[in-house]
């Protein structure tokens, strides 16, 4: 990372642009995926604001089926089909790639991982902050008569599964395209174990939450112990930083190898 200091400022005057200066393609994955998820989730929240109060208060009403159960079905089918299609493509196209990777291509792929991680972070934000607040506002105001409330339908059954889609998908990209960092032979990386664990435990906690609310606490006190296990998943999401830093170490290693090659070349 470029760190502001006198020493680095002096170093900056040397070799300014190296192989690690990726161009063009890296931005595309990062910006498009982050924007795509933002548009999707903001769109869903606008839909929630428009139809939650008019059609989402009574789960037995016909309009609830039209506006909310149909959305639930679309989300579940869409996310499931889209997820498995993307994962399958990642694995199949990854297997077809050559085993050796040139430095500049490896740097580009690491940037794609960073782009996918950025999109994962956007999904995490909508899951853990934006939609959680909507759910809190709804629950502390409206009577709960189903586990499939309007805020739950957009949060638990669209944003949460997409968290699993992104964490597993990012790992599949890494393991099929970055053999120096995430080789299958080296074992399963702890960083992705924690990150994928974060997205999976939150989905499991949905079941615990609904079970608890059905059995003993229909009211909503947000800081109640029933909700505390949800916190585990955002803590496990610290694995994101491990992925960033271990890929960054590889970028620095590439930079060093190239610098070494340059210094050795004239002597040869």
């Amino acid at each position: 990372m470029a760190v502001w200091s006198v020493i680095v400022a002096a170093a900056r005057t040397r070799d300014r642009f190296a192989v690690t200066d990726w161009r063009g393609d890296g931005w595309r994955v990062w910006i498009l995926s982050c924007l795509g998820f933002t548009v999707l989730f903001v769109g869903l929240s606008v839909y929630m604001h428009a139809f939650a109060w008019s059609a989402g208060l009574d789960a037995t009403s016909p309009e609830f089926s039209v506006y909310w159960r149909s959305l639930l079905l679309i989300e579940l089918v869409g996310v499931t089909v889209g997820t498995f299609a993307w994962w399958t493509w990642l694995v199949r196209s990854g297997r077809a790639l050559p085993a050796t990777v040139a430095f500049d291509e490896e740097v580009r792929r690491i940037m794609v991982v960073w782009g996918l991680l950025g999109a994962t972070c956007v999904v995490l934000y909508f899951m853990a902050s934006f939609f959680v607040s909507g759910d809190a506002a709804w629950h502390q105001t409206a009577v709960r008569d189903t586990a499939f409330t309007p805020p739950h339908i957009v949060m638990f059954y669209c944003a949460f599964p997409l968290g699993i889609t992104m964490t597993v998908g990012t790992y599949l990209y890494g393991v099929t395209r970055l053999p120096r960092v995430y080789s299958m032979n080296a074992g399963f990386p702890w960083s992705f174990f924690l990150l994928i664990g974060a997205s999976v435990t939150e989905m499991l906690q949905v079941a615990v939450n609904e079970w608890g609310h059905s059995l003993w606490i229909a009211e909503e006190v947000f800081a109640a112990p029933l909700h505390w296990p949800f916190v585990i998943y955002v803590w496990l999401a610290a694995g994101t930083f491990a992925v960033w830093l271990e890929t960054l170490i590889r970028v620095l290693s590439i930079e060093k190898q190239i610098a070494d090659q340059r210094t050795q070349a004239p002597q040869a």
């Binding site: 956007v122 995490l124 902050s129 959680v132 803590w235």
Partner: peptide, 29 residues
Amino acid sequence: VYLDRKWDIVFFVSAAFVIAAAGDLTRSL
């Protein structure tokens, strides 16, 4: 070794989302 500032931009902007998520959920719950 000098890395281009683009890595910083991607890191700090992306990290803001996961940090906001972690901080807000921990506080909320």
